[in-house]
Amino acid sequence: MTMSDLAVEVHALAKAYGGIPAVDGIDLQVQRGECFALLGPNGAGKTTAIEILEGYRARDSGDALVLGHDPGRPTGTWRSRIGIVLQTATDNAELNVHEVVSHFAHYYPSPRDPESVIEAVGLSEKRKTRTRNLSGGQRRRLDVALGIIGRPELLFLDEPTTGFDPEARRDFWELIRRLRADGTTILLTTHYLEEAEHLADRVAVIADGRVVAEGAPSSLGGREAGDAVVSWRTPDGVQTSRTAEPTRLVSELAAQYGGEIPELTVRRPSLEDVYLALVGRPVESPSDQGSVGEL
């Protein structure tokens, strides 16, 4: 693999605050055109890591290249090739959507057309609305508009959908998918499993400043090879069995019951099960209390 295939290349990245490591030796490789998620609980070091790559924070040690450039020495040219969507921002409160987006377009050498960007993020109807009057979700869409106005090769999104209601989250995911389809490389952080599973080609799970697992969401942590759980109803109640050979168990049961097995389910460990095992912490669900994953 040549250098130019990689949008982000990180080796042994470390950063500590007051002697306490926030990022403790991370290796990452993000390919051009891919959507890569840093997934982890709050306080795992995701924001510190992404802000080092965005050129906001200095690293203590390790190597990092973002679009072939050291993010510790940001230049204007390099900045015009990346786009950043920060975690929280309430700036430009008195300006309307159109004014903010067209103003930021002037900062870049070959910006996108402000009107099409506003349309792309679904804010056309709000183009004359002052920023302070936007809802949380609309505000984030504006942040994305400002992140992509400069036609970036690489877009950073730091916990983009925190605090969204489920519908706003779905819409937002659709927007990110369209950007990725346009060829923009995306590096996002999230503490929502569902988000990583929906958006990312590859996921790195971060806990306590380290990458504890990496791969496609479907194969994360050996998920595809993991044991399956088979459950069915017996006259004594529901019985479950954990097995590496679910097909054999089901055939045996089928023979035993002579046809339909009552209330049969077979399931692989969900991403959530894998994730919980990896980070050893309670999980947060984007849909919040209630439906935590279909079984």
């Binding site: 050129g55 906001y56 900045r79 920060l86 921002a89 430009n92 409160a93 870049y108 400002l146 400069g150």
Partner: peptide
């Protein structure tokens, strides 16, 4: 105030001189 509300951070992340 602009350091708090993200104005400066956003500007810092752009190629604006």
């Amino acid at each position: 105030v602009e350091r708090d509300d993200g104005t400066l951070k956003r500007i810092q992340g752009t190629p604006m001189p």
